[in-house]
Design a protein around this nucleic acid. Structure first.
Lengths: 366, 366
DNA sequence: GCTCATTCTGGAAGCGCTCCCATGAATTTG
DNA sequence: CAAATTCATGGGAGCGCTTCCAGAATGAGC
């Protein structure tokens, strides 16, 4: 007995023989029961190869009997590995987090993290105070690695992490020349495919509602849009481009602006489903039929895409797979810090629904 | 200097004078710089009152200069407080997690946890393996408290936690006699209000699509439905009740079953928006107009409620507030373990939209 | 049978921190 | 002015674990 400091005399307490002390068994208890030294027990528990079969078996039996679970703090203290990674989500926009994108990324990340027997810390950053707190936290080496979701161009966090040497993977990149590891969906290709789909359906005046241009996703999707037009021999004009903010309201406003500026448009590619939902509403209010008068394509294939009337044609990203890839990259980097950065772009897929069918004539079912 | 092994010479780096060694400054460094003993520095850092103003100031200066951040593992090891709480989400149903309910609960929890300067661990449990892993984890005393979201009646986890003496708060209760602390929305009252709204709108054949009855939420909402009918003097019949599974598909199936069994229904209260969306689809396919022929009310006021056509009347829970309350209860319990359990039921609110307007005549805008 | 290489093993040194305890200074009191 | 009290302080003992190191045990080689 080690911790019990209270009484040593032959106390009358007939406490149960198990559970030697409150906090659970320690490695010393295991070693004692197995009849080996603590160091040997440690090796056995951690699967070192320099342990005889006999010793290992004895230790395993003791572990099982005592229900021993290593104390994470002690282990972290000495090995300076925490077996935890942080997932940082800036939640500045309302309910950004509730977008299935985040949930699915988290879900994918969680799978891999659990499989590696590590822990996932979720850190939501809503304001300056929480941001400062996060900075201090990251400096305190309490996690082995960091995943950053939804990074803005000028976000100082990635730079900080780079300086600290903390293994980091971004969900999406900051710009075209991203120095950190990242995983993203093929935004450019997805957007291009979407617009090509519209072109293929005979649309000739195709506008776009872009996201805020300080986000690389938005820029890339816009570039994909332009690329598709260019490839089709249509010079992209700026008055068919409206920059918005990824919100439903913003989508509506942008749509009205487009209709005012170019009343003859017959298709709109929206850089997100949420904006598309707003645009749809605006189109309806303006008396345009979707898809007969104006075809509409969104991006993300989020829940609402399936629930609008007509349902939205949208670009789906393999979001959960993105999450898993992120986690795998990060875990690799944690295990082997000097390994070169890696970037991964995963293919997207166009999901065709009624808001933009494959040909102009097919009617949408109300 | 202790850990710094790389170089000691006056490097040309103009980086801040701090960071004496890679892992960050230790309390010993702080103490040395402040000219006090480590124990004094510790007291100063932790805000003990038994420190002279002078010493405190010196320590604070040193902390600032060195950019000192306490090592969490070391602190946890000795004080056996981890400053972390776990949020456990069983994600057995697909994308259950993507329901705004979870996101908002998490968001609320996160706020309070951050304000208390603690960490939030997110643990998704998808299968038996992850469940076993969680059990081992909880036994290892690596978190100060646990939040359990979406508990089923016979979930063994709450019992385990109760045995371990780990402070625990549930989001929702297991049954009517819940022994643990919990916070939930007023499911009974919400359901009752929803049905009363339908009655008030002149509906006379009101059916319900319930959730799986091994979940207390589902039972409670069903009870609320029955309560409303009873109060209105209508004896609730079982052939107007269809039990489903909280999925969209399930909602559709249930709706078709109801229509077959009772073609004359003129309203349906669905225990979730997702099921309501499925029901809506089914109604439309069956040629019923919503709300003219059949009024529809959902529950949760999730994103899709606003995006279906017609938009869904739905019961909103103060989800973020639920999250905050959960965190507060838990943090209280962590600080004061013997404090009695507390249960909290937060009021809900009916959001009226086109799928079930306040009176029978008002037309829904397509 | 004895030496040398090859495993295994136990002892011991910390990781960075908190907190108990004894010391000595400062303060109060008879 | 000495004795009693208070209070900040530094020393030191761990918390439970990993890991280095040296020594014991085993096996191989001549």
């Amino acid at each position: 007995m080690k911790r019990g400091t209270t009484h040593d005399g032959p106390g009358p307490s007939a406490s149960p023989p198990a559970a030697p002390h409150p906090g659970g068994a320690t490695l010393d208890d295991v070693a004692a029961l197995a009849g080996v030294a603590r160091s040997t027990a440690s090796r056995a528990v951690n699967g070192s190869h320099e342990v005889s079969e006999k010793a290992r078996a004895a230790v395993q039996r003791a572990v099982a009997e005592l229900g021993y679970v290593p104390n994470g703090a002690a282990r972290a203290l000495v090995s300076s590995r925490t077996d935890a990674i942080a997932l940082v989500v800036p939640e500045t926009q309302t309910r950004l987090f509730s977008e299935p994108y985040f949930s699915d990324v988290i879900s994918g990340v969680s799978m891999e993290v659990a499989a590696a027997d590590m822990q996932l810390l979720l850190i939501l950053v809503r304001n300056e105070g929480e941001r400062r707190r996060l900075t201090a936290y990251l400096r305190s080496h309490r996690v082995d690695g960091v995943i950053l979701v939804s990074v803005h161009r000028d976000d100082p966090l990635p730079t900080l992490l780079e300086e600290l040497g903390t293994p980091t993977v971004l969900a999406g990149r900051r710009g075209e020349n991203e120095s950190l590891s990242y995983v993203a969906g093929d935004n450019h290709g997805g957007a291009r495919t979407a617009v090509q789909h519209l072109i293929g359906a005979g649309r000739t005046r195709i506008a776009t509602i872009a996201g805020p241009l300080d986000m690389e996703v938005a820029r890339t999707r816009l570039a994909g849009y332009r690329d598709a037009l260019q490839r089709a021999g249509q010079a992209p004009t700026d008055d068919l481009v409206e920059v918005s903010d990824f919100t439903e309201e913003g989508g509506g406003t942008a749509m009205r602006a487009l209709l005012r500026r170019a009343p003859d448009i017959d298709a709109v590619f929206c850089a997100s489903d949420v904006m598309a939902a707003g645009a749809l509403q605006a189109l309806r209010s303006a008396g345009r039929r979707v898809p007969e008068d104006v075809a509409l394509v969104g991006f993300d294939d989020s829940i609402i895409a399936r629930h609008t009337t007509p349902a939205l044609t949208s670009v789906r990203q393999p979001v959960e797979e993105i999450g898993r890839a992120i986690a795998r990259l990060l875990l690799d980097q944690v295990a082997e810090p000097k390994r070169p950065r890696r970037q991964l772009i995963l293919p997207t897929e166009l999901v065709v629904r009624q808001s933009a069918p494959g040909d102009r004539t097919s009617a949408a079912k109300s």
